[in-house]
Amino acid sequence: MNSFANTPHSKPLETDRRMVKVSARDVCVRYGDKLALKHVDLDMECNQVTALIGPSGCGKSTFLRCINRMNDLIEGASVSGSLMLDGQDIYDRELDPVLLRARVGMVFQKPNPFPKSIYENVAYGPRIHGMANTRDELDEIVMTSLEKAGLLAEVKDRLEESGTGLSGGQQQRLCIARAIAVSPEVILMDEPCSALDPIATAKVEELIDELRQNFTIVIVTHSMQQAARVSQKTAFFHLGELIEVGETEEMFTTPRHSLTQGYITGRFG
């Protein structure tokens, strides 16, 4: 069992013919003395949605937060192993986390728009990264981002209203628009639909599928159905270990590991 858990790539995936965007090798995360993530090897490919599933506390969010170094903010967290973005070490001392986060965007569990106008919410990222020289360019970025997030039609007459006045689903799509406004290469989503109703969830899932054309997406989800619906590749975590990884369809039809099978059939978790 152990040997299996440690070699999730025993069966070759389609990895070979796709470009690997983010690649993790032997990644361990400690919170103080506690080992929260144990020796994870995982590749995330371009233009694919990789879903991370597993019971609460299994380390999937921890792994996600490693990719844009959000764990740096947590006191006592330390990361070992190697995480590569396009062959560049994410934890390189030379690499400024600020620049990394411009390339690896993030959408959080709870919609967290800034208490500013809708326009300002989206414009903030491009502004701090100096992506627009004129007001027109900025307008352009804001509009395209809202358009891509499927929100433009709903909010185009009230861009100056507060982002916190939108409904939960709209707020989450605003957060997605905000994330894609800085044209990241990877978007990390930490249970983006857990605070949304089924209709809003459906919209966000649709959006994720569209965004796949332009971005590499890694999504943490508690809902197996969601993983099955939106992802091409699924990784199952349990107690800090990566148990199994594979094509989503295969994972949900013929899981190879008994823990995976137990989890996706609802016997635990």
Partner: peptide, 18 residues
């Protein structure tokens, strides 16, 4: 101030001071 606001800004690539 809720931590979610800090996370949102940090996640966008804002520096600590920003």
């Amino acid at each position: 101030v809720p931590p979610s606001i800090r996370q949102a800004a940090t996640g966008l690539g804002a520096s600590k001071l920003q």
